[in-house]
Design a protein around this nucleic acid. Sequence first.
DNA 1: GATAAGATACCAACCGGTTGGTATTAACAA
DNA 2: TTGTTAATACCAACCGGTTGGTATCTTATC
Lengths: 216, 216
Amino acid sequence: MPRPTKHAPERGDARTRLLEAARDVVRTKGFAATTVDDLCKTAGVTKGAFFHHFKSKDALGVAVAEFWTETTSALFETAPYHTPTDPLDRVLAYIGFRRAMITDDITEFTCLVGTLAQEVHATAPEIRDAAGVSIFSHAETLEADIAAAVDERGIAPTVWNPASLARHFQATVQGAFILAKAGNNPDLARETLDHLDRYVRHLFGVQESNISGDLQ
Amino acid sequence: MPRPTKHAPERGDARTRLLEAARDVVRTKGFAATTVDDLCKTAGVTKGAFFHHFKSKDALGVAVAEFWTETTSALFETAPYHTPTDPLDRVLAYIGFRRAMITDDITEFTCLVGTLAQEVHATAPEIRDAAGVSIFSHAETLEADIAAAVDERGIAPTVWNPASLARHFQATVQGAFILAKAGNNPDLARETLDHLDRYVRHLFGVQESNISGDLQ
DNA sequence: GATAAGATACCAACCGGTTGGTATTAACAA
DNA sequence: TTGTTAATACCAACCGGTTGGTATCTTATC
């Protein structure tokens, strides 16, 4: 076990602490309104540490988007929605999982990279692209289950395809977050996920059901 | 006819010019990254004029959200999607209208108040609420057509209702914008509106169709 | 002792906002 | 018609605090 120093925040974790601070503060205030001093104060480090690990504020923006990609992909990989043997059940369980993640605290369940993409799409292409990778690589993890469900159910989608539907999932989730923020009410996010659930059941020709009982 | 002064920007329109500047610049850079000087330069007025018309930058934020509400409601009121006599056709034509508004320039077709709501939801409640009014009052204009379509088609929605579906429309549109920004590609927005079209046709039990031909 | 990690002190530019003033217009009285 | 008053609209210069970023130094680790 590494011998801790006398200082409360241990040496070597300043970068991670700054990324966690950025994740939380940016989701609350947005990227532009978040100052470097904000992040240093939240992380409990000084400016010298910040610019030692990130060459600029924009570089931190890219890094925190990549950090988000790593942490969320780990979260979704180990999430229980993968357990059903029926691929369509996994797809529906994904929606249930996203729905179950919605809590009372809006900043807690909303998406960092969605916020980033919207804010910097025209001014910081590197941050925007890092956010784009996060969203679209996550969408790709859904494609396999959707494609398997298409195969297993023997349906033949014409105008849509698994990749398109996976992206539509992400759009719906992002839109759900915006309505929750605009109305300051998480129920608005749940409501739109219920419509998504209904749409998917239609595409695969299964009965509607009250989804609030079988989350995950 | 009022005699124009010697100055190029005529007297009395500074407020409108500032609101138009805010609409354009905020959609590009976001609210926090937009400086008062930015707006003054774009509008061709001085800071004195700015603070004569708006008591603070936040007050401008509220005013530009209200300005957006006024201009967009005027746009949608006179839009051609109201012409079909069948209410469901009007609902589908609304989606087609939204789809037809998507151009190559992302900042041009995306939604100011969606951007505002996401950025300031936790830090500027007054701006957030003004953005919320804009989104939800627009959703309400859809409710009548959706309800009329429900009546006319004799369907009996149980878990969803016209108000909920109208909000889902807005969530889907907002989500479409975020994906277009994240992927820097307007096609991503069109794609998700096609899924919405398909969902609505399902809810009302009508055949799918290639919607790209009958926009508006 | 070399290198990475972090602290301290500092800076020039920029930010939202204020100040004190001027130009224009409308209302009204003489 | 002219003069007065008041209110609105706008301008140029300025202010103090904040911003992202840097230079320099100290400390820990291999």
